[in-house]
Structures are given as structure tokens and as C-alpha cells.
């Protein structure tokens, strides 16, 4: 009799702990869900502002589902004072060192512009930023100069940007 009582007490206690934990976590989820969504939207906006500046207005994301350009996710048309100045492409790829998701601006002349890394889980992440992406954005390193101490990461960035540029050209861009 006491054995059965012990089992009941054990399972009731465990069930109580499990359900109160589920309740607490659900509560935390309710509180933080909207904030997380807002963070993601704000991060995208901050990333876009890095490409063509905060004076530009950016349209909504247009998804890209082209199998030949599998790394491109979407693009945002950008314009300054209602004058289209290019598109901001979001692309993501991975190599054996980690993943990269970036925003890159491609002007209406199909030239690659600023690069902004959204996620950079490469093993040499800070080397990639300090020796390639940062200097490239500041105009001090050529786009093809990928030997930087995080060469594989730089090659991945270069390939993603080239994919965006080629997609742009293939769409007959430049109107």
C-alpha cells in the first residue's frame, strides 16, 4: 500500500514541478515574444541603413526563390527621395568555418556596394571583419583582395555578393 502511495506522491510531485515549469516558461514566452520580433525588425532596419544611409527609404522584402541563385533570400528596393538607387540583397551561405548572412547593396548600375554582416559565425569572425569587410566598406581594400587571414570567409562573402550582382544583371537590371 505504501509502495503505491510512494509512486503516486512521486509522480504527482514531478507532474507539479513539470507543469509549473511549463507555465513559467509560457509566461516568459508571452512577455518576450513581441520584443524579439521587434528586435529582428529593428536589426534589419539598422542593417539596411548601413547600406545606403538612413535617409533612404526601403521597400518591403521581395523574396527570391531562384534555384540557380540558391543563396539569395530576398531583396529590398532602396530609393533616396523617390529616386531608385539600387537594391539591398539579403544572402546567406556557409562553409566549413561557419555561416554568414549578409546584406549587400547593388546599385542600379549592377555594382556591388556596402556589405553588412547580419550573422557571422565564422571561426575567424573578427579577423574577417577587421581585415576584409571593414576595410572594403571604407574603400581601402579591393573587392577581389580576399587573402586576409580569414580567406575562406572572405571568399564566401565575395561569392555571395557576386551571386547578388549576377542575379541583378540576369534580371536585366540597369533600367
Amino acid at each position: 500500500m505504501s509502495n503505491a502511495k510512494k509512486y503516486i506522491l512521486t509522480s504527482v510531485t514531478l507532474g507539479a514541478i513539470a507543469s509549473s515549469s511549463a507555465l513559467l516558461i509560457g509566461l516568459a514566452n508571452l512577455i518576450t515574444k513581441d520584443q524579439i520580433k521587434k528586435n529582428e525588425a529593428a536589426q534589419t532596419r539598422a542593417g539596411l541603413a548601413q547600406i545606403y544611409g538612413s535617409n533612404a527609404t526601403y521597400g518591403d522584402a521581395v523574396a527570391i526563390n531562384d534555384k540557380n541563385y540558391s543563396h539569395l533570400i530576398c531583396y529590398y528596393p532602396a530609393s533616396i527621395d523617390n529616386d531608385p538607387v539600387g537594391n539591398v540583397f539579403k544572402a546567406s551561405g556557409k562553409n566549413e568555418y561557419g555561416d554568414i548572412t549578409l546584406l549587400v547593396g547593388v546599385s542600379t548600375n549592377n555594382e556591388a556596394g556596402q556589405i553588412y554582416l547580419i550573422t557571422n559565425t565564422q571561426s575567424y569572425a573578427s579577423t574577417l571583419v577587421n581585415n576584409y569587410v571593414g576595410p572594403y566598406n571604407n574603400g581601402r581594400v579591393e573587392f577581389d583582395d580576399v587573402s586576409c587571414g580569414a580567406t575562406h570567409g572572405a571568399e564566401l562573402v565575395r561569392d555571395l555578393v557576386l551571386e547578388a550582382v549576377n542575379w541583378s544583371i540576369a534580371q536585366g537590371g540597369g533600367n
Binding site: 515549469s21 511549463a22 516558461i25 509560457g26
Partner: peptide, 8 residues
């Protein structure tokens, strides 16, 4: 809809 319970 309870993906947040994944760790537990």
C-alpha cells in the same frame, strides 16, 4: 506551439 520547451 510550445517550441520554447525544447531545452526542458
Amino acid at each position: 506551439g510550445i517550441e520554447f520547451m525544447d531545452t526542458v
